[in-house]
Design a protein around this nucleic acid. Structure first.
Length: 645
RNA sequence: GGCGAUGUAGCUCAGUCGGUUAGAGCAUGCGGCUCAUAUCCGCAGUGUCCUUGGUUCAAUUCCGAGCAUCGCUACCA
């Protein structure tokens, strides 16, 4: 066997999950991937550390808590525990679970902020802004209408608002350079390119504070107690705070070797904010950012806001944790989006797990009992060589391909390598036909060789599957008469050929993975029966509704706005003695000519806003899906300005 | 609108640094075996390799344009 290269400690993280939503499939995938990566690296006999946790500060949490009449902390406790309690059920073994409300975390955030502040990379900006007292907010010049706040029609005051900014822009060139020099810094490649392309535009400095007058649920800035830390400076630092930055032994051992796993929606924060923050703080950078895609459910994207989430618990209960983990790791090409359906899970289970692996396992064990009384036979190497009965070469190839893929987070490829070997074993049985060898006592040495190679192959497979299917791995080893202690999973040991001891006892098995019989119904059962998409919004009162002033209006003119992709400038008559201009994003579905003369429904009391330099005084109601728009209209002519309710 | 990616068998995708029969898995059809979970093995397919110009002796592969889809971004009130 080849000597394994000396491997470094391995530290793997998932993002910390925001506690404004319950765990869903996306969270489960990320965390399982991290668990798989960690278990795989543990097989290399290096120290490993696996961190996950929850992100708990911010407006949304404070609001959500208020709605439930709880304190923010109570609310965060509740959701956080949903995550924390879920992971063991998915056979995920994280070493730590960090919460941004932990004292240890808050201390580190304060410490790092002080650090960067003293270094001069955080500055207090007294930028002048146009502030409307009525709105309690700042306006950009372009948002104003005739120099006035579109809402209150008053000129905003030019005042100084104070906030703290991180000099992210100072690190732009350095970051581009770093990414270019480290091909594995962001992977797969498509995301690396995306980041580099984003960095072609000038980077802006990052606002890292919120005045406490606006937000209190956060970590107070160490150098100004009138402010709390805003979002990313809080959340991202969990990766170091959990290790006991800066002095803890864990930090020294693991930090330099950190691998992050994220979904593509938080690419920018992790690929741009995070490295520049680390650089500014004088902390070594992470090794790689490993970016995966989304699970699509039927047509719509997995997302918190759509609410069409698959409950990981339900699925693992239906199909078993191992099969569930296997499906997620095997079916998604790491980095790309995948489609999720119950049908595809069933197909994976039946073809790969039941037919190929499970049946192979059964037939090999059954023959071992039939021909050798349930004991591992002895094999003569000369016989193996003379009759070409060794699987060693293929087995070694499988381990090599597997390792190469697993090292780069290409879990799907790693599994494909294992299953290629499994197929090879099924074919091997067919070629060597042990049942024929068994008929002639003179052929017994050959029969022994065949069976030993198969049993060895299965032992090896059981080891390689350990990171993905720890339970199955153990079951297989138990039946192969192997004492499944942790050492047995060392890659070195797994790879070593001929580990089974002749004469040791095997155990019978019924079915490693029973086939799932699908009912003959033509229509596969939908995974989610959640009704409306997107989901219904929260209930409102009649009073809420009454705030809307809907009116009929007639389109008298419409034109496309130059350079705008979707916007039409629509002039309407609402019977108020003047014309109104509406900017509507419907040009993909309507040409200007089609609209002229049409009666539409207008949200007439909507706050005016400037779009593409055009003032829009209302909104035209239309049915909309991703294919386009259908403007709401009437079947009889109505006087312009008539209220609609 | 800008930048980028993708478009290959019914499905999911690989591949072709330009060159005679374009691949894998799943699904389909046929054949074989019987140790096994009606499992396994073999064979058979089917493709205008998005469209259209160009370069070339030769393009699915290179270049240009177009269409479609997706991502980021800019303006979807």
């Amino acid at each position: 066997m080849t000597a394994l290269t000396k491997e470094k400690p391995f530290y793997i993280t998932t993002p910390i999950y925001y506690v404004n939503a319950k765990p869903h499939l996306g969270h489960a995938y990320t965390t399982i991937a991290a668990d798989v990566a960690r278990r795989y690296h543990a097989m290399k006999n290096v120290p490993t550390y696996f961190l996950t946790g929850t992100d708990e500060h911010g407006d949304k949490i404070a609001e959500a808590a208020k709605n439930e009449q709880m304190s923010p902390k109570e609310y965060a406790d509740r959701i956080s525990s949903l995550f924390k309690d879920l992971w063991p059920q998915l056979d995920i073994r994280n070493d730590d679970f960090i919460r941004t409300t932990d004292e240890r975390h808050k201390n580190v955030v304060a410490q790092v902020l002080s650090n960067i502040y003293e270094k001069g990379d955080i500055y207090y900006s007294e930028y002048e802004g146009l502030y409307c007292v009525g709105c309690e907010r700042f306006y950009q010049e372009r948002e104003l209408v005739d120099g006035k706040c579109p809402d209150h029609l008053k000129e905003p005051q030019r005042i100084k608002e104070s906030n703290y900014f991180f000099k992210m822009s100072a690190y732009q060139d350095w970051l581009i350079d770093h990414i270019n020099q480290h091909p594995d810094f962001i992977r797969p490649k498509q995301y690396r390119n995306e980041v580099l392309s984003f960095l072609k535009e000038p980077l802006e400095d990052l606002c890292i504070s919120r005045p406490k007058t606006r937000l209190t649920w956060g970590i107070t800035l160490p150098f100004d107690d009138k402010f709390v830390t805003y979002v990313w400076f809080d959340a991202l630092l969990n990766y170091v705070s959990a290790l006991g930055f800066p002095d803890d032994e864990k930090f020294r051992t693991f930090w330099p070797h950190v691998q992050h796993i994220i979904a593509k929606d938080i690419l920018k924060t992790h690929a741009i904010y995070w490295p520049t923050m680390l650089k500014a703080a004088g902390i070594p950078l992470f090794q790689s950012l490993n970016v995966h895609g989304f699970w699509n459910m039927g047509d719509s994207k997995m997302s918190k806001s759509l609410g069409n989430v698959a409950n990981p618990l339900t699925l693992k209960d239906t199909y078993g944790v191992d099969a569930y983990r296997f499906f997620l790791m095997r079916d998604m090409v790491f980095g790309l989006d995948s489609n999720f359906s119950e049908e595809s899970i069933i197909q994976r289970i039946n073809t790969d797990l039941a037919n190929d692996l499970g049946n192979l396992f059964s037939r090999v064990l059954a023959m071992s009992f039939k021909y050798f009384d349930g004991r591992v036979p002895e094999s003569d190497p000369h016989v193996e060589e003379e009759f070409d009965l060794s699987l060693e070469k293929e087995a070694m190839d499988a381990v090599d391909d597997y390792s190469e893929s697993m090292d780069t987070f290409a879990f799907h490829k790693g599994l494909a390598a294992v299953f290629k070997f499994i197929s090879r074993m099924n074919k091997f049985i067919d070629e060597k036909a042990p049942w024929d060898l068994a008929k002639d006592p003179a052929l017994k040495p050959r029969l022994q060789a065949v069976m030993v190679n198969l049993l060895e192959g299965l032992r090896l497979v059981s080891g390689l599957l350990y990171p993905i299917m720890p339970g199955t791995s153990k079951t297989m080893q138990t039946h192969l008469g192997v004492d499944a202690d942790p050492d047995y999973y060392l890659l070195e040991h797994v790879r070593a050929w001929k580990q089974l001891v002749p004469g040791s006892e095997l155990k019978k098995i019924k079915a490693l993975f029973p086939r799932i019989e699908v009912k003959e119904s033509k229509q596969p059962e939908p995974v989610q029966v959640t009704g409306l998409k997107p989901e219904l919004k929260p209930e409102i009162t009649f009073d809420d509704f009454s705030k809307l002033d809907l009116r009929t209006a007639t389109v008298i003119h419409a034109e496309a706005i130059p350079k705008a992709e979707k916007l039409l400038k629509v002039t309407v008559d609402m019977g108020e003695g003047r014309e109104r201009t509406i900017v509507a994003g419907i040009s993909k579905s309507y040409s200007p000519e089609e609209l002229i003369g049409k009666q539409v429904i207008l949200v007439a009391n909507l706050k005016p806003v400037k779009l593409m330099g055009q003032l829009s005084e209302g909104m035209i109601l239309a049915a909309s899906d991703k294919k386009g728009f259908v403007v709401a209209s009437f079947d009889t002519k109505v006087k312009a300005g008539t209220p609609v309710k």
